[in-house]
Write a protein that binds this DNA or RNA. Sequence first.
DNA 1: CTTGACTCCGTACCATGGTACGGCATTTAA
DNA 2: TTAAATGCCGTACCATGGTACGGAGTCAAG
Lengths: 128, 128
Amino acid sequence: MTRTISEVARVLGVNVETIRFYERKRLITQPNKPITGFRHYPNKTVDRIRFIKRAQGLGFTLDEVANLLSLDDRPCSQVQDLAEQKLSAVKEKLASLRRLEEVLQSLLALCHNNNDESCCPIIHSLQP
Amino acid sequence: MTRTISEVARVLGVNVETIRFYERKRLITQPNKPITGFRHYPNKTVDRIRFIKRAQGLGFTLDEVANLLSLDDRPCSQVQDLAEQKLSAVKEKLASLRRLEEVLQSLLALCHNNNDESCCPIIHSLQP
DNA sequence: CTTGACTCCGTACCATGGTACGGCATTTAA
DNA sequence: TTAAATGCCGTACCATGGTACGGAGTCAAG
């Protein structure tokens, strides 16, 4: 089954411009244009865009997705490497966000115990 | 004490261009230029840039920092509001990263138990 | 008094992931 | 058959947080 670009976009819930953008980024190949008429997008392309969106959902950047796609028929160990790198990046980000949460929470606690509206502990904490 | 832009940059460990960028963004005011010669940056500006960098460290965007700076002499409750918004954004991001961590971890577990190098469970999970 | 280092300023460019627009071609429904 | 709706394509633009560059002016050391 083949579809026009806007049908593909509708089916996948993405913007038409996003599909064009992926073509420009060579994440998908643009179907040949018939001598006259509109391009037809094969199911393979639809699946590929779905793949891209899922991988993005796993936190991969488009560059990394390109990498994954090129690894399609490659040894599992290479994909694993990429995923492991991603996982440690995620763990680092989690750690730093947890610290941030802590700091914000304790600053807000100070605010709650503060009676002087004109002097904010948060502003104070940011000053030298 | 006053300093040239590159001394300020060195003291703060930031790029000279970053200081100019903050001036363009009106996060700091550019000191008056002497009739002849180079600008001198007062300590007040150095402190302000330090404030910006600390607030960034708390996860505030430059727009939010501008907001904080404008709230400098304002009621604590307004700063609190901003910080509370930030905190819930952080909590949301934490939740979504935790989910991501889970998914990556279980996909990697599948890889570890996989004997078929040519068929990767991760690639498989991304396909329709 | 020259040379090298620094400043000033406007402007352009970087990554990231898209979004928007304008003008023309084509298709589809009335 | 004709008008509205889509497609095609190049290009420009969005936010975010800077970084780089080129050609002046200026300063400080030798």
